[in-house]
Design a protein around this nucleic acid. Structure first.
Length: 776
RNA sequence: GCCCGGAUGGCGGAAUUGGUAUACGCGCACGACUUAAAAUCGUGUCUCGUAAGGGAUGUGGGUUCGACUCCCACUCCGGGCACCA
């Protein structure tokens, strides 16, 4: 009898799959296609996180099951390798990000291969590869040509001591993460993408896709569609009439009779325009600069107290009742949403009420009695803002534009793509906040493609959302250098009956931005005829985070990171995969506990023993009770995988295996059926047992077993008997027995008679196949 | 402050979606095998009670014959955030 030696077995089958191209997807096939997707990892220096394994194993199980169900499965992998951590590492060490990326992807590749994921490695992609980002740049140019990319001033976080623009992530409670000094806001010209032009479709088309409901809610909340009205309020000053009007947006135009004051955002344009009419300008100006120093957390967090200043000397007229009302500025109104101004209805809105109470502004409680006629014009507003698309950073795709004083911004001709990221000496942004690329004169200075005059390259780079907004498309045709992917191949993988990526799983943290950005790009590509569907992903699910033992996030600084390499060595990849699927419900966060890995390991050892027993004994038939439980388990595992209830699927297989070990007879055929349903979870050890069963081909393309519903049927069912909702007895009945007989039999039960204590039942409730409840 | 999740034995969790609460796994205790240990197997393991019974699914209410599941109010934990008019 052979021993279960995970090291030998795992190595053997990983080599076998590699050599035979077992998981290489074909671009043409008679089989129906199935495109499974995980979020491609960012290859961080820390190596693979156990959280990656959770998502990858889940989608691997689904991919392997689909192959056995007769699909041509594409389960690809790549690297989302541009981004801050690698760049910051380069700034610190001076090692080129290309080199760092290579090291990190090598580590990740080795780790992923050691877990036996059925990726099609021949399609591996890397967002930092010029052959890849050529097409990221190409998509940007199409957006630019359609007027969806534009430049405007926005606020960025600036660290005055590091002289560097900071990402939100690098500002911790108003302090620079690098030096600890205070940060400030600075105006900067940035490239923007007009995602708001797609807001309506991004909202509406959610009806056409199969996302988890909570994910749809997140998307909808982020897009934030609301119907309301824009109403003009006439303004006048004490000294002279004003031609000015303030446009306010409200979702409740019917409350207009209760509007007792207006509030403008402190940075509303009109405030500056009214300067000469405002009698307390000094006070107003002071307030505006105070608001500028606050960051969003301060404005929203501890500082719940409402603040604001009245614009003295100006008033507005409520168009509904012609009353004169005061105008205030306050930081609870944001310039970036709606019209940047509101009509305050303190009787209806809590924020307005708090504000009114603090500043003694009138509250009209009977506003609803006044007859309402429509004011203003109906409009639809979205919370969604345009996407700030440029970064003054090194490690990103160069924005392929050239600025010419005569012609303005001119696209780099498509034949000159990609615009290669040049080598620099220093990766740190320049002191004036420009990208390090701005210092390379030989790269920056070029001729204008249009007028051939002197011109300069755009030195900003793209955010790392760019490469991840379309990567799944590249998997279909990763080596194409004429198009981002050929139409024919895209049509095959992206538009069969189901359309798009069939199943996409990823973290909840990406269900707003990444998901929205990639849907936006996809819709744009659809509009210009590049892709065949208007939605990229047909189905989207998400997994819960894996936390450290005490329920904290795993992090280097806390020293609680679990290294998968050690676990693979000790327990084996199959055990690790099984443990991660067994540890808790897939969509919820769970705490890691390496001690619990022994359970799945023992299970696999038991599977091995049962296999050896089945082989030596060579029983013709399994016992009837074993057949029954086997078919019940096939049904449960088949259904649980589809619902991502991997933990209960494994638990049912554990019960089955215990049963197999105890039963006298197991036929080889039945044992093989069991191997098939376990194979997606623990592929290495199962391939080994499959081959020991004298099977010549990989189990990966065997046929997924069906359950026989006749074998599952129960001859007798258990009925629980309750008295007043409390369990008092139970009985076995034939499933064919009618309701009256069941109730009659229940009433004759001796425990029931005891608990009735001679009282007559008021009601007898029968729940089919479950219980009888006798109420007295 | 807002949004989305979550809370069940010593621990991770299960519960046919309103119908036997605690499946499966870990841990622990005892037993078998062994010179012994490991491994494996078996038995037990929410709580109070000798028992009959009673009480438990974060807290307090409600609906129902019946609530872990539905409704209302709250507490704590995790994630996200742009005070969204």
């Amino acid at each position: 009898m052979k021993e279960y030696d995970h090291k030998k077995i795992e190595k053997k089958w990983q080599n076998f799959w590699d050599k035979n191209g077992t998981f290489t997807a074909k671009n043409t096939s008679k089989k129906p296609k199935y495109f499974n997707l995980i979020e491609f990892p960012y290859p961080s220096g820390a190596g693979m996180h156990v959280g990656h394994i959770r998502s990858n194993t889940a989608m691997d199980i689904i991919s392997r099951k689909r192959r056995m169900e007769g699909y041509n499965v594409l389960y690809p992998i790549g690297w989302d390798a541009f981004g801050l951590p690698t760049e910051n590492y380069a700034i610190k060490t001076g090692i080129h990000p290309i080199k760092v990326t290579k090291q990190n992807t090598d580590t990740f590749r080795r780790q992923l291969k050691a877990l036996g994921f059925s990726f099609d490695w021949s399609r591996e992609i890397n967002t930092t590869d010029p052959k890849y980002y050529k097409w990221t740049q190409w998509i940007f140019l199409q957006l630019f040509k359609k007027g969806l990319a534009y430049k405007t001033k926005t606020e960025i976080n600036w660290c005055p001591s590091c002289k560097i623009g900071l990402a939100n992530e690098e500002v911790v409670a108003g302090k620079c993460e690098r030096c600890g000094g205070p940060t400030e806001k600075r105006e900067k010209e940035q490239w923007m993408l007009a995602i708001t032009k797609y807001a309506e479709r991004l909202d509406k088309d959610l009806d056409t896709v199969d996302y988890l409901e909570k994910i749809k809610i997140q998307q909808r909340n982020w897009i934030g569609k609301s119907e309301g009205a824009e109403i003009d309020f006439k303004m006048f000053s004490a000294r002279q009439d004003l031609a000015e009007e303030v446009k306010v947006f409200t979702t409740r135009p019917d409350t207009i009779f209760g509007a007792t004051y207006l509030v403008l955002a402190p940075d509303h344009n009109l405030v500056q325009e009214l300067r000469s009419k405002i009698s307390n300008w000094a006070e107003v100006e002071k307030y505006i600069s105070l608001v500028k120093t606050k960051d969003d957390i301060e404005r929203t967090g501890e500082n719940k107290e409402k603040t604001g200043v009245e614009l003295k000397g100006v008033h507005a007229i409520n168009p509904a009742n012609k009353k004169e009302i005061p105008v205030w500025i306050a930081d609870y109104v944001l310039a970036s949403y709606g019209t940047g101004s509101i009509m305050a209805v303190p009787a209806d809105d809590t924020r307005d009420r708090e504000f009114a109470e603090k500043f003694n502004l009138p509250i009209i409680s009977e506003y609803k009695k006044a007859g309402f006629t429509d004011f203003g014009k109906k409009v639809t507003k979205f919370k969604l803002r345009d996407w700030v698309f440029s970064r003054q950073r090194y490690w990103g795709e160069p924005i392929p534009l050239i600025h010419c004083d005569t012609c303005g911004f001119v696209p780099v001709p498509e034949k000159d793509l990609p615009v290669i990221l040049p080598k620099v000496v220093k990766y740190k942004p320049t002191d004036n906040g420009e990208s390090p690329l701005a210092d390379i004169k030989s790269w920056v200075n070029v001729k204008c493609p249009k007028c051939k005059g002197n011109a300069k390259r755009e030195t900003d780079t793209m955010p790392n959302w760019a490469g991840s907004s379309w990567y799944f498309l590249r998997y279909t045709d990763p080596k194409n250098n004429k198009e981002l992917a050929s139409k024919k191949v895209l049509k095959y993988w992206m538009s069969s009956k189901s359309g798009g990526v069939d199943w996409y799983n990823g973290g909840m943290e990406h269900t707003t931005l990444h998901l929205l950005y990639s849907r936006f790009w996809h819709k744009f590509l659809y509009d210009i005829g590049v892709v065949p569907t208007s939605e990229p992903y047909m189905k989207r699910t998400s997994h819960g985070m894996i936390l450290a033992a005490q329920g904290e996030k795993m992090s280097k600084s806390k020293g609680n990171v679990v290294n998968p390499d050690d676990l693979v060595k000790t327990y084996g990849a199959d055990t690790l995969r099984l443990y991660e699927m067994f540890m808790g419900p897939f969509d919820q966060s769970v705490s890691w506990n390496s001690d619990s890995m022994i359970g799945p390991r023992r299970f696999l050892e038991k599977v091995w023993r049962v296999g050896m027993k089945a082989l030596t004994r060579a029983d013709k038939n399994s016992t009837a009770s074993l057949q029954k439980i086997l078919h019940k388990t096939i049904k449960k595992v088949t259904e649980d995988i589809e619902g991502m209830h991997f933990n209960t699927a494994i638990s049912s297989m554990m019960i089955l295996v215990t049963e197999m070990e105890n039963e006298e007879a197991i036929s080889i055929d039945d044992f093989k059926k069991f191997l098939k349903i376990l194979s997606p979870f623990a592929p290495h050890v199962i391939e080994e047992l499959w081959s020991i069963c004298k099977e010549k081909k990989s189990i990966s393309y065997s046929v997924w077993p069906l359950w026989d519903s006749n074998l599952i049927k129960d001859d007798e069912i258990k009925i629980v008997i309750q008295v007043n909702g409390k369990v008092r007895s139970e009985m076995m009945i034939l499933p064919t027995l009618n309701e009256e007989s069941i109730k009659g039999q229940a009433l004759k039960d001796e425990n029931v008679i005891k608990h009735l204590g001679g009282q007559d039942p008021k009601r007898v409730i029968y729940v089919k196949g479950r219980l009888v409840n006798i109420v007295v």
